[in-house]
């Protein structure tokens, strides 16, 4: 188990390294960072200041090393849009909002999708199963931002039950969380269903029944414990898609989280913040997947070996 964790930890570190290289390359992608970072009518002094601040006159490997050194200390420079904040300061300030929204969205997804997938599998071919499949198709095929707009239109404009956008009260989180969870529910319930179907046919499920175990326990303990590996593995993907989803959802709902920061920073050409957001997104994603791997090992004894 220790060895397994160590290997996964090393893999994660390697991924983080690759990401820093990518983020660094990002600034050099469209020619000189000067064009990406400075406004059109930048003066020569401004350009010179940037060149010396970023060490742009040095060799690329050297530039990368100083970038990496700063990044390791969480220093991506100062935000250009939110004056007076460091780039990482902006990110740290907004991160809790994204975690709050994402957490609620994931909770909704799990609470709805797992039972839905399990029950659809138990009644394969039944009405509930067909309804769930239709729901999945719907959920996975309509664009997230469009669905978000539908929600606003229906609940905020037509019914005037909830606010259209913004944050502050518990009412504000409902629509964005549902919009974010929708797609996940679709994907997660389908995965759970197919995993459960496979497991429910297994001999050990039959053996549990032979032992006189109740059907509820057969499904929710014997079968789900084994089927759970699939949705759990998907959980890592889920974390990623909650993050990318936050970009759309937070923009549509003006939810002041990291995704919103990403878009606003890109709009304002606030490169230091964009870099910080990308790195933090990547870190969250890697940490989530690392945790999923550990959890997998915990649930499935075969992985540990």
């Amino acid at each position: 188990m220790k060895r397994y964790i160590l290997i996964r930890l090393l893999e994660s570190l390697a991924a983080i390294f690759v990401i820093t290289v990518l983020v660094f390359a990002l600034t050099h992608m469209s020619g000189s960072p000067v064009d990406a970072l400075l406004p059109q009518d930048a003066t020569q002094e401004q350009i010179d200041a940037l060149v010396s601040a970023w060490g742009l006159d040095q060799s690329l490997p050297r530039q990368y090393l100083s970038f990496l050194g700063n990044a390791l200390q969480g220093d991506f420079g100062d935000s250009l849009k939110w004056r007076g904040y460091s780039a990482m300061g902006v990110v740290a300030d907004r991160l809790p909002q994204t975690l709050y929204l994402g957490g609620i969205a994931v909770a909704i997804s799990v609470v709805v999708a797992l039972p839905l997938g399990v029950m659809a599998a138990m009644r394969k071919g039944g009405k509930l199963d067909k309804a769930a499949q239709l729901f999945s198709l719907f959920g996975q095929s309509i664009p997230q931002f469009w669905f978000a707009i539908l929600l606003i239109w229906f609940f905020a404009v037509a019914l005037q039950l909830l606010p259209t956008s913004g944050s502050g009260s518990w009412q504000h989180v409902i629509l964005p969380a549902i919009a974010m969870a929708w797609f996940q529910i679709a994907a997660l319930s389908r995965l759970t269903r197919s995993a459960m179907l496979e497991v429910l046919d297994a001999e050990y499920v039959k053996l549990a029944r032979v032992k006189g175990v109740s059907e509820t326990r057969v499904v929710w303990v014997h079968a789900l414990r084994n089927a759970a590996v699939v949705p759990l593995t998907y959980f890592g993907v889920l974390a990623g898609s909650v993050l990318t989803g936050s970009v759309t959802i937070e923009t549509v709902f003006s939810w002041p989280g990291l995704g919103w920061v990403a878009i606003e920073a890109i709009r304002a050409r606030d490169f230091p913040v964009v870099q910080a957001v990308v790195v933090i997104f990547a870190l969250i994603y890697i940490v989530c997947n690392f945790l999923v791997d550990i959890l997998n090992a915990y649930i499935d004894p075969r992985v540990r070996a």
Binding site: I149, I152, A156, V157, T164, S165, G166, V252, S254, R267
Partner: peptide, 18 residues
Amino acid sequence: IRFVGEAATKLAMLLSHE
């Protein structure tokens, strides 16, 4: 004064009298 980037959201705010 509120900042909202998404056009459809702005329209919704108007229609919902927010």
